[in-house]
Amino acid sequence: YHCKTPDCKGWCFFEDDVNEFTCPVCFHVNCLLCKAIHEQMNC
Rank of each mutant, 00 (worst) to 15 (best):
L32G: 05
C23E: 01
N42I: 07
E39P: 13
C43S: 06
T22G: 02
L32N: 10
A36M: 07
P6F: 04
G10R: 02
Q40M: 05
C43P: 08
V25E: 10
W11Q: 14
E20W: 09
H2V: 02
T5R: 10
E15L: 04
N30Q: 01
A36H: 15
T5N: 07
C34E: 06
W11G: 09
T5D: 05
V18Q: 14
H38M: 00
F13E: 15
D16V: 11
A36R: 12
C43M: 04
G10Y: 05
G10P: 02
E39R: 10
P6D: 05
N30V: 00
N42F: 05
F21H: 02
P24V: 01
C23G: 00
H38G: 03
C34P: 09
L33K: 15
V25L: 10
D16T: 11
V25Y: 08
T22K: 10
C23Q: 03
V18W: 04
A36Q: 13
H2M: 12
C8W: 00
V18G: 06
C26A: 02
T22H: 12
K35R: 12
D17E: 14
K35I: 01
C31S: 04
H28P: 00
L33Y: 11
V25R: 07
F14L: 15
C8S: 02
T5K: 12
T22E: 09
K9A: 13
C26F: 04
V29I: 04
Q40V: 06
H38P: 03
L33D: 09
D16H: 12
H38V: 01
C8V: 00
F21N: 06
N30C: 01
V29A: 05
C26R: 02
C23T: 02
C34G: 04
D7S: 09
H28E: 13
N42T: 14
L33E: 11
H28L: 05
V18T: 12
C3A: 00
E39C: 07
Y1D: 13
I37L: 08
H2Q: 15
Q40E: 15
T22N: 06
C43V: 05
H38A: 02
H38N: 02
D7W: 04
N30Y: 03
K9Y: 04
Y1F: 06
C34R: 02
I37Q: 11
F21S: 14
L33V: 11
P6W: 02
D7Q: 08
V25Q: 09
C31D: 03
C3E: 00
C31G: 02
D16P: 15
D16Q: 14
I37C: 08
F21V: 14
V29R: 10
D7R: 10
V25K: 10
A36I: 06
K4F: 13
P6A: 10
E15H: 06
D7P: 03
P6V: 07
F14S: 09
E39T: 13
C3V: 00
G10E: 03
E15R: 11
A36Y: 01
A36C: 09
P6K: 13
C12R: 08
L33Q: 12
N19M: 11
E39Q: 12
V18H: 06
N30T: 03
N30W: 01
A36P: 06
C3G: 01
N42Y: 10
C3P: 00
V18R: 14
P6C: 02
W11E: 15
C43T: 08
T5P: 02
T5M: 13
K9R: 13
K35V: 05
Y1A: 09
D7N: 10
N30R: 01
Y1R: 01
K35Y: 07
C12G: 06
I37Y: 04
E15V: 07
V18C: 12
C26L: 01
K4Y: 11
C43D: 09
C34I: 00
N42C: 12
C3I: 03
D17K: 14
L33A: 12
C26H: 03
D17W: 10
H28D: 02
D7E: 13
L32R: 13
C3L: 00
C8T: 00
A36L: 03
C23L: 00
D7I: 01
T5G: 06
C26I: 01
K4H: 09
I37G: 07
D17A: 12
H2Y: 15
F13K: 11
T22A: 06
T22F: 07
C34L: 03
N19F: 05
L32M: 07
N19D: 12
C26E: 01
V29C: 07
C3M: 00
D17V: 13
C3D: 00
H28C: 08
F21Y: 11
M41H: 14
E39A: 11
C26G: 02
H38S: 03
F13T: 11
N42K: 11
V18L: 10
M41F: 08
H28Q: 14
T22P: 05
F27G: 15
V25I: 11
D16K: 15
L32E: 05
C31R: 03
H28Y: 04
N19G: 08
G10N: 01
V18P: 14
E39N: 11
Q40L: 04
E20Q: 08
C31Q: 04
P24C: 02
K35T: 06
C26P: 00
C31N: 03
M41C: 13
F13V: 07
C43G: 06
D16I: 04
L32Q: 09
N42S: 13
E20S: 08
E20V: 05
K4S: 10
C8M: 01
N42W: 11
M41W: 12
V25H: 11
K4G: 08
C23K: 03
C34F: 02
K4T: 09
A36F: 01
M41E: 15
D16E: 13
E15A: 11
L33M: 13
H28F: 05
H2L: 07
H38D: 04
C26M: 00
L33R: 15
D7K: 11
E15K: 09
V29D: 05
K4D: 04
T5S: 12
C26T: 00
C34T: 03
N42L: 08
N30A: 00
H2R: 13
G10V: 01
L32S: 06
W11V: 15
H38Q: 02
V25C: 09
H38Y: 02
K4P: 04
L32A: 07
N30S: 01
C43N: 04
P24Q: 10
Q40W: 03
T5V: 11
H28G: 10
H2K: 15
V25S: 07
K4W: 11
Y1V: 07
V18N: 07
E39M: 09
F27E: 08
N19Q: 14
P24L: 02
D7L: 08
V29E: 05
Y1L: 04
F21D: 08
D16C: 08
C8A: 02
F21A: 14
T22W: 04
T22D: 05
F13G: 06
N30K: 01
V25T: 05
V25P: 02
C12L: 05
E20F: 10
K9G: 12
K35E: 12
F27V: 03
Y1H: 07
W11M: 15
C31E: 03
G10S: 03
N42V: 10
P24N: 07
C26Q: 02
N19Y: 09
E15S: 07
L33W: 07
C3S: 01
I37D: 10
N42A: 15
M41R: 15
I37R: 09
P24I: 00
P6L: 05
A36G: 14
M41I: 10
C43E: 04
M41G: 15
H28W: 03
H2N: 15
V29P: 03
P6G: 04
F27Q: 14
C3R: 00
F13L: 12
V18A: 11
E20R: 07
T22V: 07
Q40A: 11
F21E: 04
W11N: 14
K9L: 11
D17T: 11
L32C: 07
G10M: 03
H2A: 06
Q40F: 03
K9M: 10
T22I: 07
V29H: 04
D7M: 08
A36W: 01
L32H: 02
K35D: 09
G10W: 05
V29F: 03
K35F: 09
E15P: 09
F21M: 08
V18F: 07
C23H: 01
T22L: 09
M41L: 11
E20L: 09
N19V: 13
D7F: 07
E39W: 07
T22Q: 10
H2G: 03
C34A: 02
N30P: 01
P24K: 06
V18E: 13
E20M: 10
P24R: 05
V29T: 10
F21G: 06
H28R: 13
C43L: 04
Y1C: 04
Q40T: 14
